[in-house]
């Protein structure tokens, strides 16, 4: 799994590529923690190129979403496809975290 961190319209966007499993989930959470400690209160995560996520990955998403909410911000997720979309829908995480079809719409929010 690789994570690219870019700024779009002043907001931090994490582009996650590959597989988020029991071995790599901590890497994602660590990257989010770094952004939060650098001052980010909201994060946008682009999952368009993530092909796989397990419950260990979901644990990281819920943990990060809670941390951001406690700071008055939020986690926004965009471009889910395939198994990743299925897993978010089955576990109803799509009702806890705002989901968007594109990075642009996630940046605008609402």
């Amino acid at each position: 799994m690789t994570i690219d961190c870019i700024q779009v319209e002043g907001k931090v966007v994490l582009h996650v590529v590959g597989r988020m499993d029991a071995e790599s989930a901590a890497q994602f959470e660590g990257q989010c923690d770094s952004c939060i400690s650098e001052g980010s209160t909201s994060l946008i995560v682009d999952l368009g190129d993530l092909s796989y996520v397990s419950s260990m990955g979901l644990r990281s998403f819920v943990g990060v979403a809670k941390k951001l909410k406690n700071k008055g911000g939020e986690l926004r997720i965009c471009r889910l496809t395939g198994l990743v979309r299925q897993v978010f829908e089955i576990t109803r995480l799509n009702q806890l975290v705002p989901m968007y079809d594109s990075v642009e719409s996630a940046v605008i929010g609402g």
């Binding site: 419950s55 809670k66 806890l96």
Partner: peptide, 23 residues
């Protein structure tokens, strides 16, 4: 089974693995 109706502040971070298995 996990309670999937809880809001974010009350939702545990884990507990979804066996639910995914059954699904």
């Amino acid at each position: 089974p996990p309670d999937l109706t809880l809001d974010l502040s009350r939702r545990p971070v884990g507990g979804l693995g066996i639910f995914l298995l059954k699904s």
